[in-house]
Design a protein around this nucleic acid. Sequence first.
DNA 1: CGGTGTGAATGCTTTCACAGCC
DNA 2: GGCTGTGAAAGCATTCACACCG
Lengths: 209, 209
Amino acid sequence: MKTLPAPAQRRLVLLAQLLSQQKTRKITSSMIENLTGWSSSLIRRDISFLNFTHGVSNGYDVAELRAAICDSLGIENTDTEDIRRCCIVGLGRLGAALLDNSLFSETPFRITVGFDSSVNRTEVLRSTFPLYPLSRLELTVSDMGLQFAILCVKEDLAQETASRLVNSGILGIVNYSRAIISVPSGVFVENISPVTALINLSVRVAGRD
Amino acid sequence: MKTLPAPAQRRLVLLAQLLSQQKTRKITSSMIENLTGWSSSLIRRDISFLNFTHGVSNGYDVAELRAAICDSLGIENTDTEDIRRCCIVGLGRLGAALLDNSLFSETPFRITVGFDSSVNRTEVLRSTFPLYPLSRLELTVSDMGLQFAILCVKEDLAQETASRLVNSGILGIVNYSRAIISVPSGVFVENISPVTALINLSVRVAGRD
DNA sequence: CGGTGTGAATGCTTTCACAGCC
DNA sequence: GGCTGTGAAAGCATTCACACCG
């Protein structure tokens, strides 16, 4: 098996999510094409990277295929074992809205701690896990051995906070701010600011000749 | 000028954002490489698609380059003209957190209306623009001629709501839910659920051999 | 020199097309 | 007959390498 190309990896993540919603028991590559717009041969190629040998020729078994993708990507969505604990940094309106582990049900992720510069906010907000002042970030992240952070601080603090996270051992950052943050190699960032998303949409809409 | 490749387009959007943060007046492709991890020749190639002829050989003028990117992508960040009006659908904790146009300052986007199935929420939440019950979605979206929507409804309503948006003329959807939504060709979706982002990070972290 | 801009080469990704299987 | 899985071809994106410029 060749190594999984990055675009294929991202499609497979979405495909796994699509399969969890799927009501039917079987699905064919052209049904997936209709749902996603990706060509059926591309989908078959993506699936072939999983070396998932299903045997039958009349489509994929939805549950089996999803399991094969999760298995291959290491994203078993068990609720019990192999949980990845994450922190949220910045508990403004947006950060506070994400303090809700029901968003992560049936995934291997759990929010286990939040940080904010305002002690007022860490004390007023209710959650099932601790909320600490920013000053305890380094200590807590390294003690808990966290690898993932959700960054919801304001633009002007984004780089500084990201660096502190990286220095404490964080390997992946979900960046909700518009700021572009620099991280050393081996650390990854997913930029999901609504502004970036709207700009990308706008360019794509304009570009459809 | 050849047409802009999709990966280059996405990098340029991020580059424009990076340039807005940049403190220096000049920047070279290898400074950008250090900040972003993209190779300097790739950056020069991306910029060459703009047919931006800057003249000098000791780096790019930050402001000029940013203007050239925005111009070429049609994302002038004026606050006055050519504003794209957007709606938010679903005013739970997350949707309500985005009802804040200060998130979109210095961009051509403005939230101009919100919708929720709960009349209670549309009446209790405060905002500078109207909040309506979901039943008024079609009428309002087509009356206002909106092209962009931010979708924050729960998973089980995502597809149905997206279809209603598309039928009302929406061309681009920022999807905050985990649900994968199907749209006809000519309509675009950006999936930015925190769950998807974490999964992608987790796969990339695991894959760094 | 220390930089850009760009043909040409390389390396990836996607599509084509068809054998093989149920 | 309809679908998968996959070599081989085609099409894209990235890197190389170097002419050229201030």
